[in-house]
Amino acid sequence: MANFPANVTIREVGLRDGLQSIATILPTEQKLEWLRRAHAAGVREIEVGSFVPAKLLPQLADTAELLACAKTLPGLFASVLVPNLRGAKRAIDGAADLMIVPLSASHAHSLANLRKTPDDVVAEVARIRAARDAAGSRTLIEGGVGTAFGCTLQGKVERAEVLRLMQASLDAGADRVSLADTVGFADPRAVRELFEQAVRIAGDRFWCGHFHDTRGMALANVYAALEAGVNRFDASLAGIGGCPHAPGASGNASTEDLAYMLDSMGAGTGIDLPALLELRSDIARWLDGEALHGALWKAGLPRTFEQTRVANAA
């Protein structure tokens, strides 16, 4: 454990990646409660939504309102997903702390998801950087390279192509880069090998790992990424999420399960797990009928958890 980060950040993505792929359109007031209570439970990075046309994703039509609320919460780092320059301008206008530009290493998925080739998206990153700088904005740009371990549409994605697109995003002006296992194809060995190479290339500009639990591998893959020196991960309460344009891309890593694993190992997250589980319970009620995931909510925290957490902290 000596080589693992002492502290790990969990970026809650349920309000975007989670809600975008389910049928339920959650009322804005419940989303705002989710946002405020996650913050109160110690979550300090939250992806609040996406600036896409409401006709395409009505689940995320109120992103501007959620971003405005997030900006009032002390110490909260608020991010949004932006698929193009138009969305980026809205993120800049809303003073988002960070905007994520999704870039798929799978050409087939890129065309299905964004109607652009991966290199078209790299060119869009350059335009977004120019607009950000011209506006004098401090909003950071993250190039999020998805389908990094394969794709249900294309099949195999070459590691060299993933790393090429990651470097191209940085060269185009991204401040940060991240890698995502969009369809849950990854395994711990592949994660460790790819993430070690990615960290060597990007250094401290490597920002985040994003793992889907489609085949039950998300937490094992997080562990492998920790071994590679990564200390920030996306996760969604109740494990909801997926990509509408990637068949079989079900389920993010569960925030509550991930926080429990990290705290149990002595990697501090700053998250109040009982408070998070209470919020998860309410989200389950709000999303009645939707498929939810995770194990901690069923088993509960072990009686030894607090003793172990205190011992690890010492």
Rank of each mutant, 00 (worst) to 15 (best):
V177F: 09
E65T: 14
I10V: 09
D175H: 14
L114T: 07
E45D: 12
G251Y: 12
L32K: 14
K55A: 14
G242V: 00
M261T: 10
C243D: 01
R11G: 03
L258H: 06
A78F: 08
R176I: 05
D97R: 06
G42R: 04
D119H: 15
L56R: 12
G87Y: 02
R16S: 04
I46A: 00
A225V: 00
L262M: 07
D97Q: 06
K156H: 15
G144A: 15
A96L: 03
R132Y: 06
A6C: 07
N312C: 12
F185N: 05
H210A: 07
L85Q: 09
H212S: 09
R192N: 13
P274Q: 05
A38V: 04
T72F: 05
L153E: 10
L279G: 01
V191E: 09
Q59A: 05
L67Y: 03
T139D: 11
V230P: 05
T24E: 02
P53N: 04
D257V: 08
T182Y: 06
T255A: 10
A41G: 09
F149Y: 13
A299G: 14
D263W: 06
D187N: 15
G270F: 02
A313V: 06
L194A: 11
Y260M: 08
L81H: 04
P27Q: 07
A135R: 08
R11P: 00
T117K: 14
A174V: 09
F4Y: 15
L296D: 02
N252C: 07
A180T: 15
G144R: 13
R285L: 13
E256M: 08
M99T: 05
G143H: 08
L165M: 10
F233T: 03
A267G: 07
A267T: 13
D272T: 08
F206A: 08
G94R: 03
D257C: 03
A299L: 12
R200D: 14
L301R: 05
G242F: 01
L276Y: 10
R205T: 04
V125C: 11
V80S: 01
D234C: 00
R129L: 03
L98E: 15
G241Q: 00
D175S: 09
A54K: 12
A172S: 09
R11Q: 15
K116P: 03
L153N: 12
R285T: 13
R86L: 13
D17F: 00
Q307V: 13
E306S: 13
G144F: 13
A148G: 01
D187C: 11
S178N: 09
A186G: 04
L35C: 12
R138D: 15
A123R: 14
G184V: 00
A108F: 12
S169V: 07
V121A: 07
L276R: 11
G87H: 09
A259R: 01
V145P: 06
G266Q: 08
T214A: 10
A291K: 14
V191A: 10
T63W: 06
I240M: 02
N84E: 11
A253W: 02
V310C: 11
A168D: 12
